[in-house]
Structure formats: structure tokens, C-alpha cells
């Protein structure tokens, strides 16, 4: 009798756990289905190039300026945030015994969890307020700051994972430190480093909150210089989804399908890289 009761509870709990686990994964599939069923039909070459449509009347329009803006912002963020994050991560791994490294690592772990809107407030203060104009550079700096801790912590992992014997071998060649770290050991850690950069890339491409306070999201011009306002795909989705115009909602869904595709592509590439390591 007692054994039966235990067996029943066992079955029951395993069932509940499985049901909850499956329920928690439903949203991602729902999101993918909804985004593509609502958004995919608007995507065409013209959608990627054209200016957004006027709220009422006119043709289908597109997300050209926002796509250009996202490319500019992400490229800058990856260049700035990527290099700061990379060298910080390298230091954290190779000089992990120093107090500076320990403190920096703690700060970065806290920084990863910073609400990103706070980064936007910071970028506003140092780059928007002095220039008295929303500008692309402020957005790029804000995105750089957002991705630095992700890249640094992941690059640290990548360098940490290099076997100690390999590190010893590299230095026993008698080459200088930069060559040992940046040519020999980087090639050993390249997949981890690449993954770190891809994580940063995905983060920068999808981040919205700091852009609200820095780039304004000008809708009808492409790129006018780093000191000028600019748009980005996530910001366009946010602004258009909250607008009262049905047509802009459609553009928002189309843009979401584009963004989701970009994120999926980055995700799949990074998975393939990781898998290759195991082989």
C-alpha cells in the first residue's frame, strides 16, 4: 500500500514537472510562428531598402533607414565594445591572480545585470546633452557599453579553457607576450572568442532601451553622419508597434521578422562553432 502511494506520487510529480517544462517552452514557438506569419509576407528586397510608408495611404514602404542604422550602430559597437571587452577579458584570464582582475570581474558581473536603460541615461549625459542633439555616436557608445561585460566574461572563459601545457609551450618558444597571447593562444581560443563576439553582436542588434535615449529614431533619412540622429530596427519596432496606425503595425511585424532572422542566424552560427569544438 505504502509503496503504491509512493509510486503514484512519483508518477504525478514527474508528470507535473514535464508539463510545466513543456509549457515554459511554448512561448518561443508561439513567438516564432506569430512573427513569421504576421511579418514574413511584407519582406521583400524593397522592404529592406525603402523608406517607411506614410501612416496613411501610399505604398507598402520599408525599413531601409533602420536597417542601415542598425548596421552602422552594430559595426561601431562591435569595434569599440569588442576591443575593450576582448582585452579586458584577456587580462581577467591571464592575470586572474591580481586584485585588479578580481575586482574588475566582480564589477563586470554586476554590469551584465545593469538595466540597459541606465546605460542609455549615461550615454545621454556624456554625448547627447553636450551636443544638444540625439546622435548615432551616443547610440553606438551605449551599445558598446552594454556588450563589454558579455564579451569580456566570455573571452575570459575562452582563454581560461586553453590547457595549461599549451600556454607553457607557447611561452617556451621565447616569443614576446603579445605574439604568444594574440597569435598562438588566440588561435587556440578562437572559437570561444568568436562565440563571445557573436553574443555581443546579437545583443547589440536587438537592444532597444538605451537607443530610446540616444538616437531618437529619425524615420525618413538614411545615414546623415555620426553626429546626427539615426534609426535602428529594434527602435523602429518599438515606435511603430505603439503608434496608432495599422500600416505601421504591419511594418513593425515585418521588421520583427527581419530582426528574428538576424538573431536566429547568429545563434545557429554560434551553435555550429561550439559543436565543432567538441569534435
Amino acid at each position: 500500500m505504502r509503496l503504491n502511494k509512493r509510486k503514484i506520487i512519483d508518477r504525478l510529480m514527474l508528470g507535473i514537472i514535464s508539463a510545466l517544462a513543456i509549457a515554459s517552452a511554448i512561448p518561443i514557438f508561439a513567438i516564432a510562428v506569430n512573427v513569421y506569419s504576421e511579418g514574413a509576407r511584407y519582406i521583400s528586397l524593397n522592404f529592406l531598402i525603402d523608406l517607411p510608408p506614410p501612416p496613411v495611404g501610399g505604398g507598402g514602404g520599408g525599413i531601409g533607414p533602420a536597417l542601415v542604422g542598425t548596421l552602422v550602430l552594430v559595426a561601431l559597437a562591435l569595434a569599440i565594445g569588442g576591443s575593450i571587452g576582448f582585452f579586458t577579458g584577456l587580462y581577467l584570464s591571464e592575470f586572474s591572480h591580481t586584485r585588479l582582475a578580481q575586482y574588475t570581474q566582480m564589477f563586470l558581473q554586476v554590469m551584465v545585470e545593469f538595466p540597459t536603460i541606465i546605460v542609455g541615461l549615461f550615454a545621454y549625459m556624456i554625448l547627447v546633452a553636450p551636443l544638444k542633439r540625439f546622435n548615432a555616436l551616443a547610440g553606438a557608445i551605449a551599445l558598446s557599453i552594454v556588450i563589454i561585460p558579455y564579451i569580456a566574461l566570455n573571452v575570459r572563459e575562452a582563454y581560461k579553457s586553453i590547457p595549461y601545457t599549451l600556454k607553457e609551450a607557447a611561452f617556451s618558444l621565447g616569443v614576446s607576450a603579445p605574439i604568444a597571447y594574440l597569435r598562438i593562444l588566440l588561435s587556440a581560443a578562437r572559437r570561444g572568442v568568436l562565440t563571445a563576439l557573436l553574443i555581443g553582436l546579437a545583443k547589440a542588434a536587438g537592444e532597444t532601451a538605451p537607443l530610446l535615449l540616444t538616437i531618437l529614431g529619425t524615420t525618413f533619412t538614411y545615414f546623415g553622419g555620426l553626429d546626427q540622429p539615426i534609426n535602428a530596427i529594434p527602435l523602429l519596432i518599438y515606435n511603430f508597434a505603439l503608434s496608432p496606425y495599422e500600416k505601421w503595425h504591419q511594418v513593425a511585424w515585418g521588421a520583427a521578422a527581419v530582426l528574428l532572422t538576424i538573431i536566429l542566424a547568429i545563434f545557429i552560427v554560434s551553435r555550429l562553432i561550439v559543436k565543432e569544438v567538441k569534435v
Binding site: I31, P234, A241, L264
Partner: peptide
């Protein structure tokens, strides 16, 4: 993948 989805996509889906 769910953890790395941009929050604006969650927002759009959440709203509509």
C-alpha cells in the same frame, strides 16, 4: 535561444 531573444520582440508579441 529564448534567453537571447531581443526584448522588443517579446514586447511586440506581448502587446498583440
Amino acid at each position: 535561444l529564448m534567453a537571447s531573444l531581443p526584448s522588443v520582440i517579446y514586447g511586440l508579441w506581448g502587446l498583440y
